[in-house]
Amino acid sequence: MSVAVKLEDVHKSFGAVEVLKGVSFEVAPGEVVAIIGRSGSGKSTALRCINRLEKVQSGVIEVCERQVNDAKLDLRALRQDVGIVFQSYNLFPHLTIAENIMLAPRRVKHITRAAGRALALEKLAQVGLEEKIDAYPEQLSGGQQQRVAIARSLAMSPRVMLFDEVTSALDPHLTGEVLRVMETLAKGGMTMIVVTHEMGFARRAADRVIYMHMGTVWESGSADILTNPQTPELQDFLANEL
């Protein structure tokens, strides 16, 4: 697999509003890509198209050798390959942390309850929350909930992880604990696409940065573009961001 994720001239509209106006980029296996840009630039929409939470009008999206835009796509298989973490965590409130994590492995991969619990413990260790295994989501802080959400995604052994502004609802302290988990994950070789407003994270962890503006990839390159932007729009964006 030379390309984990590929978008080619992707167009997406919500009603009359065209949100993606020909977006193209590629992500290699093991690569960490940060997508930055203003609200409304289409970065979250582009991310959500990758595991088909949004359907696109035209263009090619290829994820782990699957054509996402194909009518014959095995959607559930795609979603086993692609994990996603949301801004609002979206843990299941009626289930314990262990049950949140083992639900999909048990239902989709048919592992036993004991194996599921062992898996939950292993993934919780990865995000530093083993002691919360029997708690309920409402008993956790936002940062802890988000780390559980990451563990829940990891439990399905995805080949690509998507992060949709996962720290936007958190204060700086809690943001730090979530970003550290993500940086460890990045160092471990996980293919990651991270929509974020955290320029520090992009600088430290991203192999590549994509700046989206008005529904297109406006500028992209190594994290150096954050200190040495080529377009006035990115310059302007970074000046306001810092």
Binding site: N51, L53, R76, F86, S88, N90, F92, A104, M156
Partner: peptide
């Protein structure tokens, strides 16, 4: 968003209805 999270984990429609 609960249903979206469950879909993203690969659960089937029936499983989502029952569990989530």
């Amino acid at each position: 968003s609960q249903i979206e999270a469950a879909e993203s984990l690969g659960l089937s429609r029936f499983q989502i209805y029952r569990d989530i």
